[in-house]
């Protein structure tokens, strides 16, 4: 389940890229490079969010994962 870089890291990177562009200290080539990288990061992050989907599973006693309905994950009364 290990990811290359976490969502938060990449989001922070995007913010940093935007900030450095806003600084205006970069050369035009660097600015274009940063811009392209920023666009790419943005697309990846959006894609990441869009790929996620609601899912509720239950881990059974024999280590199987069973999808649960969105409703009551009820089995037995406990507390």
């Amino acid at each position: 389940m290990a990811k290359k870089a976490g969502f938060e890291d990449r989001l922070a990177e995007l913010e940093q890229i935007v900030a450095s562009l806003e600084d205006g200290e970069l050369s035009l080539e660097q600015a274009v490079e940063h811009y392209q990288k920023g666009i790419k990061l943005h697309r990846e992050l959006r894609g990441h969010l869009e790929r996620m989907e609601k899912r509720i599973e239950q881990l059974t006693a024999d280590d199987r994962l069973v999808d649960l309905d969105d409703g009551d994950p009820a089995t037995e009364d406990e507390d």
Binding site: E53, R55, I56, Q58, L59, P73, E78, D79
Partner: peptide, 21 residues
């Protein structure tokens, strides 16, 4: 679950039901 899905409607949750007392 409600607070998770209120904030993030696409979350993936794995529940392990246990007795808690």
């Amino acid at each position: 679950l409600r607070s998770i899905y209120d904030r993030f409607p696409r979350a993936h949750v794995r529940l392990v039901p246990v007795r808690v007392q």
